[in-house]
């Protein structure tokens, strides 16, 4: 589970544990002093090791509740893990200060899932997009010019028409374009996109995915893609990590995992999605017993981490 020594690790999580304290539902806005509320704990991330290498496109794949979005939040500096370390270019994200913090904020940008939620409904598009240049030292005119140029790049033209619009006046696809513009405008090193197309109409998904692809390729942006959808993960990324219940259960080249999934959960994920290989029909059910894994002698065991190395950077969690 160590990144190739010649690659530069941009983001690195080590032994990350995140625990959520959940409160059982209680009446809203109660003023009651004496109401007992039970709380329980949910482990959202369990001992996760993961790194994002410079210039690569990597996906985190898993169902809902798998912890993939939590890991994204941890990498974005929004959620301090209970245990473990998270580093940006070797520095702990949650201890960044001053210039280093500024660098991190400029260089790691999110794209969110819900386009109806990722732009401030009370602010104009020009404001929301220009937000991405907040920490950049530029004149007002330079920023405005950059906003116009970026809106053009994401296809929100004529630019003048969109600058003064409010989010509710845009379609879902247009909003996501604006959100993409906000994320890319400051030319960040890393983009973390959490299900950027899952809430869009099927008709615009491909356009948005292609837009993201185009934007990241033009600047060689490092790309962390969070999705439940193996098909788009395969389309956008060359490396993949599969998560289940807060753990990474399989890690490797996207092609290797999709061609020969080694973990039972990965196979279930593949069976769950409409077939991406055979047009128009569901994939034939794959055997639930892993073909290569499960027999000890087949792979090298790493007793300490609980992962089995299948070669070529393909790891799978011991069942």
């Amino acid at each position: 589970m160590v990144g190739s020594p010649w690659s530069h690790e941009v983001l690195k999580a080590q032994g990350v544990n995140v625990v959520f304290r959940m409160r059982s539902s209680a009446p809203k806005g109660d003023h009651l002093a004496s109401v007992a509320r039970e709380s329980f704990y949910v482990k959202a991330l369990r001992n996760v090791d993961f790194q994002v290498l410079e210039g690569e496109s990597v996906s985190l794949v898993g169902g809902s509740g798998s912890g993939k979005s939590t890991l994204a939040k941890v990498f974005l500096g929004f959620l301090r893990p209970k245990e473990g370390s998270v580093a940006y270019l070797g520095n702990d994200i949650y201890r960044l200060k001053g210039r280093r913090m500024r660098e991190f904020r400029i260089n790691v940008q999110p794209i969110f899932q819900d386009p109806y939620n990722s732009l401030n409904p009370a602010r104009k598009i020009s404001h929301s997009v220009q937000l991405g240049l907040f920490l950049h030292e530029m004149s007002k005119e330079q920023k405005e010019e950059r906003v116009a140029r970026t809106l053009e790049m994401v296809g929100l033209t004529p630019v003048d028409l969109f600058l003064d619009k409010y989010p509710h006046q845009l379609s879902g696809g247009q909003r996501q374009r604006a959100a993409i513009a906000r994320a890319f405008i400051g030319q960040p090193k890393v983009i973390i996109a959490d299900e950027p197309v899952s809430m869009l109409d099927a008709s615009v998904r491909a356009d948005i995915l292609n837009l993201i692809l185009k934007m990241k390729q033009s600047k060689n942006t490092t790309f962390l893609y969070i999705t439940h959808d193996l098909a788009t993960a395969r389309y956008l990324t060359e490396r993949m990590a599969v998560m289940e219940q807060g753990e990474i259960v399989e890690l490797g080249k996207t092609e290797d995992i999709i061609e020969s999934p080694a973990h039972e959960y990965t196979m279930r994920l593949m069976n769950a999605v409409p077939d991406i290989w055979h047009h128009g029909s569901r994939a034939p059910d794959r055997p639930v017993v892993p073909p290569r894994f499960g027999v000890d002698s087949d792979g090298e065991k790493d007793e300490t981490s609980g992962y089995v190395d299948l070669g070529n950077g393909h790891y799978v969690k011991r069942g």
């Binding site: 539902s25 209680a26 009446p27 109660d30 009651l32 002093a33 004496s34 109401v35 007992a36």
Partner: peptide, 13 residues
């Protein structure tokens, strides 16, 4: 509060 707890099954005192 007592009235509330009596009416709302989710609340226990």
């Amino acid at each position: 509060d007592l009235l509330y707890a009596w009416l709302d099954p989710r609340v226990s005192l």
